[in-house]
Amino acid sequence: MTKSERRSERKRRDPDLGVLVGQLLFAFQDELFATLAAQGHPDLRPRHGIILAYLDAEGSRATELARQSGQHKQVVGKLIDELEALGYVERRPDPTDRRAKLVAPTALGLDQMARSDAIVAAIEARHAQAVGAETYRAFKAVLREVTESQRAPRP
Rank of each mutant, 00 (worst) to 15 (best):
V103W: 07
D30L: 07
E90V: 14
G87V: 04
A122S: 12
L25V: 11
P153L: 12
F139S: 14
E64P: 02
E9F: 12
F26H: 08
P155W: 08
D97C: 05
L32C: 06
A66L: 03
Q29W: 11
A114H: 12
S4E: 12
L79D: 02
R92D: 11
A122L: 11
F139E: 14
Q150P: 08
A130W: 05
K11V: 07
D16H: 10
L65Y: 06
L25H: 15
R144P: 00
G40I: 02
R45H: 05
S116V: 01
A141K: 07
E90H: 11
A100G: 09
G59W: 06
E5W: 04
S69Y: 09
H48L: 03
E124D: 12
S8A: 15
S149F: 04
R144T: 11
G132E: 01
L52A: 09
Q71T: 11
R154N: 14
A152C: 09
D56H: 15
T106C: 05
S69V: 04
T2A: 11
E148G: 06
A104T: 15
G70I: 02
A128V: 00
F33E: 06
E90P: 09
A118L: 09
G18M: 03
M1H: 13
G109H: 08
E145L: 15
F139H: 12
K140A: 03
V142H: 09
V89K: 00
H72Y: 08
L143F: 10
H41L: 03
V103M: 07
G132Q: 04
I123N: 02
F28S: 04
Q68R: 15
A104L: 10
L36R: 05
L17K: 00
T63R: 09
L79F: 12
P105K: 08
V103K: 08
R151L: 10
R126D: 02
Q74F: 12
E134M: 15
A104H: 10
R126C: 00
V76F: 01
V76S: 02
E9M: 12
R99C: 02
D117T: 12
E31F: 14
R12G: 10
V89I: 00
I80Q: 02
M113Q: 14
G49L: 09
E58L: 06
L36F: 02
V103Q: 08
A100M: 08
R137D: 15
A66D: 03
V19R: 07
V142W: 07
